[in-house]
Simulated scan of single mutants.
Amino acid sequence: MVADGDRPASHKAKSTSRAWLQWQFGFTLVMFAFMYLPVLVLAFFSFNESPFASNWQGFSLRWYISMFNDGRILSALQDSLSVALISVLVSSVLGTLMAVGLARYTFPGKSLYQGISYLPLIIPDIAIAVATLVFLASMAIPLSLWTVVAAHMVFCLAYIAVVVSTRLAGLNPYLEEAALDLGATPRQAFIKVLLPELMPAIISGCLLSFVLSMDDLLISSFTAGGGVNTLPMEIFSRVRTGVKPDVNALSAILIMGSGILAFTSEFIRYQSDQRRLRN
């Protein structure tokens, strides 16, 4: 019989590696449970028959039906969709042009401009909200739906530019030069050669920015004028007096929609990367 001290070093290394993997797996499960268990509980109680969020009385769809018949929620949804769609559409154009300009051209102060352009990714939302409000007040610009759109464009543009820049970094830098050598104009080379290659990244960045815009509360609250009420603002105003089942239903739908869009964004980016590797 072989003693523990006589076991081969490879066997001990395998045991240590197996224990380390088991610890990592257990820690990952705990972290996922910590992040997503509250979401599952919220979705579960959105089907509660009881008007009290924490008292289960049976399965029912009454709160989803009530939510879709609620005029305030439908109005808030309209405001949220208007803000998200307009800000994302404008940011997709400006963000793509900014990413291409930073990647393809050299000009004085490029590094400084690049750093400033990506600041919204690391600055807290509360800082952006306060800074935007102070700027609007100093310029005597009245708060409205359009001020919310302008504020959302700040971070939407940065996210789209980052995603497109990542795609640009993996492209052949001589694609446009080849098109120009074959007789294409700079505009034709951009539209017919570069833009199709960037389109998966643009769509992915737009979906990600749309999710962030739909879910934003702080910036919208600080920059919205009278009569403007987005979905996160409506949810926040309702939970201040207690969490109701209709709020659970609305939150569950928002979470599901955001998850679908985020997954679609990552899937498009993954498919684009795989197609590029095959080519």
Rank of each mutant, 00 (worst) to 15 (best):
G225E: 10
S221F: 13
G259Y: 08
L261W: 02
V30K: 04
N248Q: 13
F45G: 06
M98Q: 07
W56Y: 08
S265W: 08
G109S: 11
F107D: 09
S60I: 01
N279T: 13
V134P: 00
V154E: 07
S46T: 11
Y270G: 09
S221R: 10
A151H: 10
R275V: 06
F52M: 09
A179P: 04
A137G: 02
L261E: 05
W146P: 05
A84S: 05
P142S: 12
L121S: 05
F32Y: 14
Q188N: 09
L136P: 09
S272T: 02
S265H: 04
A158T: 01
W23C: 08
V88F: 05
P124L: 12
A224M: 01
H11W: 13
R269K: 15
D273F: 15
R62P: 04
D246G: 01
V93L: 15
K192A: 09
G101D: 04
S138Y: 03
L21K: 06
P51I: 03
A13G: 04
L89P: 02
M35Y: 12
E176L: 05
S92L: 03
L175G: 04
S220M: 01
S265N: 01
V148N: 02
T166N: 15
L136T: 03
F263P: 06
L182A: 03
I141V: 13
L40W: 14
S82Q: 02
T264S: 14
Q114F: 14
A184P: 01
V239W: 10
A127Q: 00
Y64D: 10
S50Q: 07
K12R: 15
R72E: 15
N229T: 13
F25Y: 09
A19M: 05
K14Y: 07
F32Q: 11
A9T: 12
V148H: 02
P108T: 09
I116M: 15
A249N: 06
A131I: 00
M256G: 01
C156I: 13
W20G: 08
L89V: 14
A129N: 07
L277C: 02
K192I: 09
I123R: 01
S111H: 10
G257H: 04
R167S: 08
I191A: 13
S204V: 12
I126Y: 11
S92W: 00
D6S: 11
L61V: 14
A129I: 02
D70G: 10
D181I: 15
L171K: 09
V39R: 11
L195T: 14
S138I: 06
S92T: 11
I202H: 04
I128D: 00
E176C: 06
F155E: 00
M1K: 04
F34S: 10
F190G: 11
P232W: 14
L42I: 15
F27H: 08
I253A: 02
L250A: 04
A151D: 06
M233C: 08
G26R: 15
S209Q: 03
L81W: 06
R72I: 13
G95E: 11
P196Y: 09
E177D: 14
V193A: 08
Y118S: 08
N48K: 01
I235V: 04
A43R: 02
A262Y: 01
L37C: 09
V83E: 08
V39T: 14
A150F: 05
M31T: 11
D216F: 12
P186V: 09
D4M: 13
Y118R: 12
T132F: 15
S91N: 06
L194W: 03
